[in-house]
Structures are given as C-alpha cells and as structure tokens.
Amino acid sequence: MGLTLPPGTVGTSELGEGGIRALEGELEALCVSVDDVFPRPASRENLRAMVRGLLSEVPRKNMWQLAEFAGHPSPDRLQGFLAKAAWDADELRDRVRTFAVAALADQDAVLIADETGDLKKGT
C-alpha cells in the first residue's frame, strides 16, 4: 500500500541534483545563518558537505558515501567533524527550528517527521 501525496507536494525522491542546485542560494543562506555556531572554518565546510550529501541522490547516506560525494578520500574528515568538532548543539537546533518554522509557516500547516531508518539485514 503506497502513500499518495497531495498535488504539488514534492516527495523526497523528486529532489535530484538539479533541484538541489536550484536551492543552492537558500541552502547557503541557511548555512551562513549558523556559521557562528561553528568556530572553525573547517567545521563550516564540513557542515556544508554533510548537508549537501544528505540532500543528494546518494542511495545510502553512510559516511563513506557522503565523504565520496564531498570528494574526500575517506570518511575520516566527516567522522571527525561529527565526533570531535565543538559546537553548541542546542543553539544549532534552535536556529534550524526557527528557519524551518518561518519557511513552513501557514495557518493550516502540519509537519510530520518520520525517521524509519534504513532496513537492516538479519533479525
């Protein structure tokens, strides 16, 4: 049983590389709005690489594929960013929430987030 989206709704499978490029200005504006949360320039670059990779058509969003998409020889740089880089997670969350609320603001709007994850093999 498949889910039918209302007319005009963009399903995640419909946002290809061209769609991401069309949104580049908005994506960069969002990243700029949180740049000061990341004190190091390398962290800001890694943030952009992660976001672009997560929005890309990369079929599996694991660190190896995200690193490859970003042009890195291994996932070490992105793993280090997530594991060791310093940033204020609460401040980042609050700013992204503010951005999302402003972008989705409508009297009748409803946002449903469903993180079902990847299907795993085995039991």
Rank of each mutant, 00 (worst) to 15 (best):
W87P: 03
D88M: 05
Q107W: 01
G16I: 03
F81R: 06
E24W: 08
E28K: 15
L78V: 03
E28Q: 15
E57R: 01
A67G: 08
G122A: 05
Q79K: 03
S13M: 02
L23W: 11
A83H: 03
V10H: 09
S33T: 14
G71D: 15
L119C: 04
T12D: 08
S13D: 11
G71Y: 05
T123S: 04
D90N: 12
D90T: 08
N46H: 11
D94V: 15
A42C: 10
E14S: 10
L104N: 01
L30W: 14
C31Q: 02
E14N: 02
R21H: 13
L27S: 00
G117M: 14
G71V: 06
A86M: 10
S43V: 05
F99I: 03
A67H: 04
G11Q: 15
T98A: 06
Q79E: 14
A109K: 00
S33Y: 11
G80T: 10
I112M: 00
D114V: 14
G117N: 09
A67D: 08
G11S: 12
H72I: 06
L104M: 01
D35P: 07
L3A: 07
P75F: 08
L3N: 06
L92T: 00
G19L: 11
R21C: 07
A89N: 12
D76I: 03
S13N: 05
R60D: 06
R60T: 09
Q65P: 08
D90K: 10
D108V: 00
A103R: 10
